[in-house]
């Protein structure tokens, strides 16, 4: 269990190195958007990002030592939250805009062309504003992203086999490591002890907003798919189905 002996500093440097490269949509965007064209661009980008997300997760120290079942379950639970936090990070210095990729930026108003998406854009923009007010640091951002992944599924069923039990224990120790890492990152900012505690609380509370927006987004995407506004395929389809089939 090398991650338990890893210092918070080392843990952060490993997850900083795991960061996926910048991704481009690489499509000729025809403006104004239609409902179908915007949904297609959004889902094409999400599908590309998902492939990189799997590689990213595998680079989180200790993740690949979890059981394969836990790895799959965690990713299926949190993928949209991870995509949304990444979007917030890219958009943090651009008030009122959502920077999906360097070549795909949307203003709040552009959300008007997709039924029901402006509400989600507004929630994304609100959470992004909170991160802007808090002056979220890159080290904190990477910790939060790892926290989302590792905290995404606290299974209700108790582990049945030794393998499941070991994986569950590893997961809990990994969560300890990532919390330690976030606490360490906050401690570098030159705040008073009380301010550090408050910051940790505020950052952690933002995660519940992200979960909420992700649930809204998941419903929206499955509705768009059901109404044939957009054709969802490939890895994105697999990840979406994992959520819609378990909730219905």
């Amino acid at each position: 269990n090398h991650q338990s002996t890893m210092s918070p500093e080392e843990f952060i440097s490993r997850i900083m190195e795991a960061e996926p490269p910048e991704i481009y949509l690489m499509e000729d965007l025809k403006k104004p958007f239609t409902e179908a064209s915007m949904m297609m661009s959004l889902t094409n980008l999400a599908d590309k990002e998902l492939v990189l997300m799997i590689s990213w997760a595998k680079k989180i120290p200790g993740f690949v030592e979890l059981s394969l079942a836990d790895q799959i379950h965690l990713l299926k639970c949190c993928w949209l939250e991870i995509l949304m936090l990444g979007l917030m990070w890219r958009s943090v210095d651009h008030p009122g805009k959502l920077i999906f990729s360097p070549d795909f930026k949307l203003s709040r108003e552009e959300g008007q062309c997709v039924e029901g998406i402006m509400e989600i854009f507004d929630m994304l923009l609100a959470a992004t504003s909170r991160f802007r007010e808090l002056k979220l640091q890159r080290e904190e951002y990477v910790c939060l992203k790892a926290m989302i992944l590792l905290n995404s599924n606290l299974s209700t069923s108790s582990p049945q086999t030794t393998e499941e039990l070991e994986s569950r224990n590893k997961l809990l120790r990994l969560l300890d490591s990532v919390i330690d890492a976030l606490v360490w990152a906050i401690s570098k900012l030159g705040l008073s002890t009380q301010q550090q505690t408050l910051r940790l609380g505020h950052l952690a509370m933002l995660l519940s907003h992200i979960r909420h927006v992700s649930n809204k987004g998941m419903d929206h995407l499955s509705n768009m798919k059901r109404k044939n506004v957009v054709l969802v395929y490939n890895l994105l389809l697999e990840m979406l189905d994992a959520n819609t089939s378990s909730s219905s």
């Binding site: 799997i54 590689s55 595998k58 890895l235 697999e238 990840m239």
Partner: peptide, 13 residues
């Protein structure tokens, strides 16, 4: 094999 499983089980190049 699902795509997710495939991506998780392939060794990094």
């Amino acid at each position: 094999h699902t795509k997710l499983l495939q991506l998780l089980t392939t060794k990094p190049e």
